[in-house]
Design a binder for these strands. Structure first.
Lengths: 256, 256
DNA sequence: CGTTCAGTTGACCATGATCAAGAGTGGTGG
DNA sequence: CCACCACTCTTGATCATGGTCAACTGAACG
């Protein structure tokens, strides 16, 4: 109980209250078998059927698909507490790849172990599906981002999203957080070129919306950045978003 | 047994073999309580928490999010056999809206009924999650579509996707199918303007890739259209895609 | 100390957006 | 039955966002 909870536990508690037993269960699960992956290495490649399910305990990864011409679209980032491939509990083959951005620390969950959980711990099972559905909601928001927003909006949106996701698992310090993405990564996630990402980030910097120095992002004014990115954080389904809303914001479910 | 299976059954059988009992169960489920929705009507709006889960038995719908400035991004289309909001089995509020494109015929599944299924029919439960995960894979593909493909590619991709999805539930006739989307709908789905969609569709028509007349799409040469849209249908996780591949196509999980 | 990779800058170009107007079609009510 | 309205599709002219190509800087690392 006096122990610092691991990333998975922190993540699940964002959605569902867990009992002490649940937490112990998760701790055991995450300690059982861990693995380290070096930056830029593929964790799982499209078409593979890994024997176990990974949970990120530390570091950043990205989910992506490649096209024949070599272009890469990142479809999501994964941070501590994220599950890599719950898919495989049901689907048989990966339909996309996952690659390490930073050095990664992973927990490996065998299928039997997970099956055990699913049949015994309702709380944890519910929370796991919750994580899965939230990640689907994030996919939808990325579709909106790519389809409707301008370059500065897309990038501001990405900064907000990652900050809020890190905050929900306790990985922010005040208004700054680690931010290991290269401008190339940002380009592949936002459907822009790295040249344009570069110019756009400079613009956001000039407007005083963000500061980035040595893999660290600082957001001087969160509400302003949210406006710049037209972000409505509801899609993240976090419990405590009150910090980043104000009375002036029109509620998402107001009119129409 | 001599009965024509309903859309949900056809859909689930695309993924998992079902027993006669499973099928009966599904038939009862879908007959229990149905509802009709008129075109352009919202079925469920963002922020709502509908008491039951809808399954589309007939017609087309779309999932979308609105931005404050009134722009709409369609994030997915739903056709017969698709579940509208399995989300709500776990999440409490809708994070997006669903609207009827054509007149819709829906089956309404109460939470208790679904809960019953989940605890008693493993086959059906697995297939339902399968549907959910495939729809997530489709989201990923839409991200790729919006992020990496040109206007003609995006639209060709959409035509292919919808045709293949309809085909898998037996709703195509040869190489044509119903196609009730307006150019405006296509614009909102592909992140383009309707003006540009119009010109692009004319181009696809001129290239002989598609024919559209009175809500009906015909694809003279499926492989050619797939190439034009840079489509790799693996992401749909259909069982029988062999019809639309040829020896010349490089397998998706070949090199690297 | 050279190599590699991320970031930066400039010049030019192309895809797709915007604005505006008109044609075709179907539905509705007087 | 016809007039009107609404909606979808179509076309043209102009513009802007973001892409392409290419070169250069600076830091990190062996």
């Amino acid at each position: 109980m006096g122990q610092l909870p691991n990333a998975l536990t922190r993540r699940l508690e964002e959605y569902t209250p867990l009992t002490a037993t649940d937490r112990d269960e998760l701790q055991i699960l995450c300690d059982q078998s861990t693995r380290t992956i070096q930056p830029k290495r593929d964790l799982i490649a499209e078409g593979e059927a890994p024997p176990c399910i990974y949970v990120i305990l530390d570091g950043w990864a990205c989910h992506y698909r490649m096209l024949e011409d070599g272009s890469r679209q990142i479809v999501d980032f994964a941070i501590p507490g994220d599950l890599c491939d719950l898919n495989l509990f049901i689907l048989n083959r990966m339909d996309h790849s996952i690659s390490a951005i930073t050095r990664l620390k992973l927990a490996q969950l065998g299928r039997e172990m997970l099956h055990n959980i699913v049949t015994h711990c309702l709380n944890i099972t519910t929370a796991l599906w919750w994580v899965e559905l939230v990640s689907k909601s994030i996919h939808r928001e990325w579709i909106v981002n790519l389809g409707q927003r301008s370059a500065p909006e897309r990038i501001a949106h990405l900064f907000c999203e990652m900050f809020l996701r890190l905050e929900s698992i306790g990985l922010t310090q005040g208004f700054s957080c680690d931010f290991p993405l290269t401008q190339n990564d940002i380009a592949d996630a936002t459907g822009l070129t790295s040249v344009h990402v570069n110019r756009t980030i400079q613009e956001l910097r000039k407007r005083g919306l963000i500061r980035i120095e040595r893999q660290r992002l600082t957001i001087p004014n969160m509400l302003e950045l949210q406006e710049a990115g037209r972000v409505n954080p509801d899609y993240l389904h976090h419990r405590r978003l009150s910090r980043h809303t104000d009375a002036g914001r029109v509620s998402s479910r107001g009119a129409k």
